[in-house]
Design a protein around this nucleic acid. Structure first.
Lengths: 401, 401
DNA sequence: CCCCTTTCGTAAACAGCTTGGACTAATTAA
DNA sequence: TTAATTAGTCCAAGCTGTTTACGAAAGGGG
């Protein structure tokens, strides 16, 4: 019947799962007493004590100060995530830079390092070597804080075959069918993971975005290209081959300019960073980001009321709104979050975007979903990558003994 | 961390799950010996014997004729699904008809009944009463064959709130906020389920479609409106509120005619059954289906080479292809299946559709996914509904004691 | 025809995990 | 100081899958 996660459950499986149940509740409610954990999980106090003891043995949680919950009675001891135990390493390869980030189990940022690096057209081996060095540096810095990096996740700007660790197509890097596994510096306890930058940026928004994201949203991640990370019920939706969310290649204008993907009038060619800069009459030299980059100058001109700039951004907003209307009809997200380069442009791009979106997303549901603006801007993908590792540890603590 | 299916596992849970594991393997490999089940599941022979005994007690499986697998040795007894035990009832409310269908555990059709019924604009209570009578008839017919209907699922042509059993908006029926629960005749052991017609038609295609559907596809379900059922990894993708897959309201032509949804130039207004009939110069009187209906006449004219008809269908194909290009970029399905009214029109609609699709779905992946044609045509949704019930029983046999 | 080998299915003892109740510990209210 | 209340642990019991052993039913070889 229907391909399904259909593994037999034995005693060991039960234990593993229940360890995760307790650990997840610790993460959500720390510091929390064993008695309260028993209420929260439905286990008996005995079972909770046993499970917590195991988690303590693995260095994942720690007893802390006494907690007094009710009025009377013996106070309990607060169990918390062990802040100086396991950690997750996030890495990112992008066109202009390499980034690394270490998160402890509580998803607190403990280390962060970004180096600018012109990776477009650069030899993949050289890029991966630099990334490897960055990773080694991060692992060492973490160790200096008492943290042990349990695993790493790498964000890459392109379509990739996650099962085999191969970048199938990354037009902005100029990579095709590049294997990325086997980088040293990633030799951690858990095998490294690789994922699309847009997907990981969406997870970054889920865990670190302003306001609690409810776990059902689409994060529009405009960097050089335009991607979308689709999060449903707290998990990334990837489609059959992992290529879902390619927002940038929806057709915005069938008679528009040709695109590197082979199509015509893709959204990227109309609302992508380079297209907007060009339409506004600005140079597209790299790096475009930062206050002094082309993007900063675009914002200046918009603030100054420059007609060409305003027109370019308005057009981009309309195109993006049209594409998002399709997203709403097909994916039905709860919220839309604008990230990446769209974040600083939000004030100007949002009005035309919302107008078109409201028109195209039907009144079958009750109006279009709200369009919010990410406060994370650039760092979202590294954060999401590191958070993914932490989540994996918390969802299956048995991996660490 | 992250809202997740996070229930503690106790002994009873383990049993329930393992019963399902064994039952699913029986369904896939019947007739199958206990020894082979032990290999397939990884359980010991003892455990398999115990679990099978429980399933036999619940009337879900049955011992059959001896099976000789190897050369030498004692033959085993074949365990099969109990064909005359539990059954699933599927029901469908559509604009032109009501339908019912009973499936045994092996998903064999054991009863089927369709009555034409003009439901557009009819009082919801009357429609539900007629459906209830149809259901009671089906349950009685099943009982006559020794089958016990364990539960029912109802397919409805509109957006609905599945949690509360309310039809939010069904424009083609003229229903808004109609509660559909509490219909007698659906008082089965398991509570009845309600779902969108497009979603259930996709499941019908998954289980009964020609050629094994691999569990990752989009089924385009054109009846009066145009919907899409998105199946990922064998399960329906519903989005945050259950409104995903509203293909019919993607904007095909921003300057097109207004739509009942409030938008403009929705795909439905260009490629929907009524729009195509109108463009071909045919009346849109109901029922449109069947060899004598308007649809049959359209096929006649297409076969005869009528220019207006060919032009209308070609235009519809282009619009549908454009919408499907968006689907491919956002959802990344493995296959696209054309069902409903598009099935008989496939010969004429597919070429323009595929041309536009190939153009718009980029070469980032390797070409557009294959476009196949469903052989189920009309009955897909009822079959899917009944199959859903059967699947639920097989995925959780503990529900039946 | 008899006996050995192979395979199927079951029975009894065993091991892992959660449960339930009893018991100790620590704190507040009176 | 005493009673009440809450936190956490200890130990016996129950449920479930595993291990080991054994009887049952077939084919092959002498």
């Amino acid at each position: 019947m229907t391909k399904s996660a259909n593994a037999p459950v034995r005693h060991a499986t039960m234990r593993e799962r229940n360890l995760a149940v307790v650990l997840e509740h610790v993460a959500l409610h720390q510091p929390v007493t064993r008695a309260r954990l028993a209420e929260l999980t439905g286990f008996t106090k005995t079972t909770v004590s046993n499970l917590v003891a195991l988690l303590e043995g693995a260095g994942l949680v720690r007893d802390g100060a006494p907690v007094h919950e009710g009025e009377r009675g013996r106070p309990g001891v607060g169990v918390s995530l062990h802040g100086d135990g396991a950690a997750g390493l996030g890495l990112e390869v992008n066109v202009d830079y390499l980034a690394a980030c270490v998160l402890d189990l509580a998803k607190q940022v403990r280390y962060r390092h970004v180096i600018s690096s012109g990776n477009r057209g650069r030899e993949p081996g050289a890029v991966l070597a630099a990334l490897s060095a960055l990773a080694a540096e991060a692992v060492a810095a973490a160790a200096g804080q008492g943290l042990t990096v349990a695993g790493a996740a790498v964000a890459l700007p392109g379509l990739l075959d996650r099962d085999n660790g191969v970048v199938r197509h990354a037009p902005n890097l100029g990579w095709s069918d590049v294997p990325v596994t086997g980088a040293p510096g990633l030799a951690t306890a858990l095998p490294p993971e690789y994922d699309n930058e847009a997907n990981l940026a969406a997870l970054g928004e889920l865990w670190f975005g302003g306001g609690a994201r409810l776990g059902d949203f689409v994060h529009v991640s405009g960097e050089i290209g335009i991607g979308a990370g689709i999060v449903v019920d707290g998990r990334v939706f990837r489609g059959a081959h992992g290529f879902a969310g390619e927002l940038g290649h929806l057709v915005a204008d069938p008679s528009g300019p040709p695109c590197s993907c082979g199509g015509r009038g893709c959204l990227e060619q109309v609302a992508g960073q380079e297209a907007v800069l060009r339409a506004a009459g600005l140079p597209v030299t790299r790096p475009a980001g930062g206050p002094e980059g082309s993007l900063g100058r675009l914002v200046e001109r918009l603030t100054a009321g420059d007609a060409a700039a305003l027109d370019a951004v308005t057009r981009a907003g309309r195109a993006l709104g049209g594409a998002l209307a399709s997203v709403v009809n097909l994916i039905d997200p709860d919220t839309i979050v604008l990230g990446g380069v769209f974040s600083p442009l939000a004030a100007w791009i949002r009005p035309p975007l919302e107008a078109v979106l409201a028109n195209g997303s039907g009144s079958l549901r009750r109006g279009a979903p709200p369009v919010e603006v990410s406060g994370l801007a650039e760092g979202a993908a590294v954060l999401g990558a590191a958070g993914l590792v932490v989540d994996r540890v918390i969802a299956d603590p048995a991996l660490l003994l």
